[in-house]
Each structure stands twice: as C-alpha cells, then as structure tokens.
C-alpha cells in the first residue's frame, strides 16, 4: 500500500466516530469590514510603527517626491511601472536598471515598485507580481525598497485584503523592514530582507 493510501485510510478510521463539524457550523461573526474614515492616515501611522519611512503625498506631487528620493541612487525598476513614477526616477537617479537579472540586482541601491493592496490596520503592503511590481527577488535582494501605494489600493483590514487578492500569482505581504527579535526579544530592523522600507502613499 502506498503512503498516500495508508495515510488517507488512517484518517478515515480516525474520524469515523468523531462528532460532525459541518462547514455551515463555522461562525464568522468577526468583522469582515472595519469602519475607517482615514485609511491613508491609519496606514501611514501603522507602517511608521514598524520603523519604516512613510511619506503621505498628494498624487500630483508624487513624481517630484520620487525624483527627490531616487536622486543619486542606482535604482532597479520592474516592467510596467507607471510612467509618471518611472519617468522622474529615471531622470534623477544615477542609473536605472529595468527588470534586472539576478546578478545585476546586487548593483542596485534601491528598488522602486507599486503594490497590489495595502492594509491600513496592520500597516501591510501586498505585492502580487503584477505590472510595476516585478519578480519576488527584485524587492528582496536590494537593501532599500521604495513602494508607492495609491489611495484606491488601501483597504482597512485583513478580510478586505483577502477578498481583493487571488493566489494565482505569488504574493508577498510586507509589514515594515526585515526584522528579528531572536536576541533577547530586542527588535532589530534589518536582517536578510531590505533594511529600509520607504512607502509613498499617494492621496
């Protein structure tokens, strides 16, 4: 008998006498929508709690702010990054690496991307490898991740985010810079992932 059949058989015998636990009996009385009248403000506050850098910027001023942030850096950008973000970065940066291969990633000081969804309550940005977000390694190897969030991408809580996302493409949920508390429970930002997370919230 294969391990597969053996395990499935054991499971069936194990639960044969167990009480029913129907799907319909799962109580979902928790909040699936969190009321919030200032999503951008809450998101900014919660991201900052993780000691990430946050800029809340009117949409019209985003290109100028990105130019300022990109100045003097070698910036990696994914394919499909909106022209109004990529353009100013391209002009101000020392160099721009578009969708660089892995061996070029080490040369980038920072990476500039958009995101798919942002969660205000938890201060989370979610990347789904869509246009303007790139392969997962793009936002992992460079030490500085610059991420632009549009107001319409912000939801209040985790259930709203799950409802907007599908797992067809790989998802990366990011809540602050890389961190560890493995030494005496002292939180240290920056181990293997980007040590600086900088989020521009366009309102």
């Amino acid at each position: 008998m294969s391990a597969r059949e053996e395990i499935l058989g054991r499971i069936r015998r194990a639960v044969a006498e167990a009480p029913e636990a129907p799907e319909a009996g799962i109580p979902r009385a928790y909040r699936t929508a969190v009321p919030c009248d200032d999503l951008a403000g809450l998101l900014a506050e919660r991201i900052a709690d993780y000691r990430a850098i946050v800029h809340v910027v009117p949409v019209a001023l985003v290109p100028a702010r990105l130019a300022e942030l990109a100045a003097g850096k070698r910036i990696a950008v994914p394919d499909g990054l909106p022209a109004e973000w990529a353009g100013p970065a391209r002009e101000a940066a020392d160099a721009v690496l578009t969708d660089p291969a892995r061996d070029e990633l080490g040369a980038a000081d920072a990476v500039l991307t958009g995101c798919a969804v942002a969660i205000a309550v938890t201060g989370t940005i979610v990347l789904d490898a869509g246009p303007g977000q790139g392969r997962r390694e793009l936002t992992l190897v460079p030490d500085h991740h610059l991420c632009v969030v549009r107001a319409d991408q912000i939801v209040a809580g985790v259930p709203e985010a799950i409802a907007r996302l599908t797992p067809d493409a790989p998802l990366t949920w990011i809540s602050g810079p890389s961190a560890t508390s493995d030494i005496e429970l002292d939180r240290v930002e920056g181990v293997h992932g980007p040590r600086t997370l900088e989020v521009v919230i366009a309102i």
Partner: peptide, 27 residues
C-alpha cells in the same frame, strides 16, 4: 483562501505580538 482572513489575524498577534509579521510569502 478565505480562511486566511482569520488565521492571518490570529497568528501574528498571538505569536510575535505584532499586528502583522514583517513578511508573509504565498505561492
């Protein structure tokens, strides 16, 4: 998929005491 809306709230807060852990990967 929807069940994650429950467990991604329960786990980080119970575990590291954070609103969300720094990285979650789904593939």
């Amino acid at each position: 998929w929807r069940d994650l809306e429950v467990f991604l709230q329960l786990l980080p807060r119970s575990s590291t005491g954070e609103r969300m852990n720094p990285y979650t990967s789904m593939w």
